[in-house]
Design a protein around this nucleic acid. Sequence first.
DNA 1: CATGTCCGTAAGTGTTCACTTACCGTAAGT
DNA 2: ACTTACGGTAAGTGAACACTTACGGACATG
Lengths: 108, 108
Amino acid sequence: MTYAKALHCLSDPTRRRVFERLRGNPQPVGVLARGLPVSRPAVSQHLKALKEAGLVADRAEGARRVYYIDPDGLGELRRWLDQFWDEALESFKGEMARVTTPRNRKKT
Amino acid sequence: MTYAKALHCLSDPTRRRVFERLRGNPQPVGVLARGLPVSRPAVSQHLKALKEAGLVADRAEGARRVYYIDPDGLGELRRWLDQFWDEALESFKGEMARVTTPRNRKKT
DNA sequence: CATGTCCGTAAGTGTTCACTTACCGTAAGT
DNA sequence: ACTTACGGTAAGTGAACACTTACGGACATG
């Protein structure tokens, strides 16, 4: 059920920006906040949520807390999505087969 | 940017239940609502959001609107997640290397 | 010890949003 | 045409939540 938390976390734009900024280079909270349009406590709160979802982890480095991406949450989300993807495709193919009458077509 | 809408949609538990109930068997709105603890208009609103995110599509069947899963939105979300997954793993490996290597020093 | 930096938490506020009931258009049956 | 089923939309309400400022604890340097 952790994928639910992960989805909830990644649904927020700011939280997603925090998460994406961690991709590739771990950063302490202050540096992270300096590159974002919100206050430092806001970033702290977002990091707490991301951590509870298993999306990030942190290590202490002196007085700093360096955050980095934890693959656990992302992996669980990916597994859920993949399992869903297969069955979704199956359902969709069945649906398309039903509409063999060519007058009707799906819109984009 | 559609993955943002998809994430937002799937972050809501009820909307996720609607979506999951469509997996495998397309259903009209009424039947869908009868199996859920919310009212039919609520389901309609959720379906509208899901449709705008490219997660579901619908076909008219008499007075009924039968909804089914559209792989488009799910596919885009999957691509975004996959692209993210690779870089996240890379970042995480670098992080683990920093921890397990005894003589490693910090300082960026 | 004292000062400065870094960060998490508390408390308060405004907005988003998921839900409700009420209403209206559409399709099929009599 | 009338009636019944189906479903989308409007309007209003309560709660979740993303932000803010203020505060306090932990670490390093003088």
